[in-house]
């Protein structure tokens, strides 16, 4: 079936079998491999993308269900040059080691801080509980997200 949506600000189209998840559509048909697929049944959070502003698990959404939506992946968070404030914060706080889970953490944290720039540490810990990381022990990730909040307090999206 033919699917059309907006990926990272650009209109895209794909011809996919009905059973294709949004994750596989993005990776295999649109060749944007920043989104990682871990468990394929909604427990690890690695494949998190942002659909119409909300963080969702792209392995638990059909590509067909994204028709007409605005989808943002980790590629869409990164400015043309350098890193976003959130990504810089991950580097500063050593919030990743192998990096497999990182796109999911970045998209989740970006959606959260965009909607709730004043999220407290407890809220951030609670939200990030939906993403698994087997390297870091989470502490540095939580520190990085907390530290990035100031960049989201401004309303200008260009500053992110």
């Amino acid at each position: 079936m033919n699917i059309a949506f907006e990926l990272n600000g650009k209109p895209v189209e794909a011809e996919v079998p009905a059973r294709t998840t949004l994750a596989d559509c993005i990776r295999h048909h649109l060749m944007q491999t920043g989104t990682h697929v871990g468990c394929e049944h909604g427990v690890c959070g690695a494949c998190t993308v942002i659909v119409d502003g909300d963080a969702v698990r792209s392995c638990l959404m059909l590509a067909a269900q994204a028709s007409g939506a605005k989808v943002t992946t980790v590629e869409g968070l990164t400015p043309a040059e350098g890193l976003s404030a959130l990504q810089e914060s991950f580097r500063k706080h050593h919030a990743l080691q192998c990096g497999f889970c990182t796109p999911g953490f970045l998209t989740t944290a970006h959606a959260l801080l965009t909607q709730e720039p004043n999220a407290d540490k407890e809220r951030i810990r609670h939200v990030l509980s939906g993403n698994l990381c087997r390297c870091t022990g989470y502490i540095n990730i939580i520190e990085a997200v907390c530290d990035a909040r100031s960049a989201y307090a401004k309303s200008d999206p260009e500053s992110r």
Binding site: A18, T21, E40, H41, G42, R57, C59, L60, M61, L62, A64, Q65
Partner: peptide, 26 residues
């Protein structure tokens, strides 16, 4: 019927359900 799919799709990924048709409420 599929709506959010948050229970149905994992069930299908595990082959605990294999419906021939999915009717989306979107």
């Amino acid at each position: 019927i599929i709506a959010g799919g948050q229970s149905l799709l994992p069930t299908m990924a595990f082959r605990l359900a294999q419906p021939a048709y999915l009717v989306d409420l979107r």
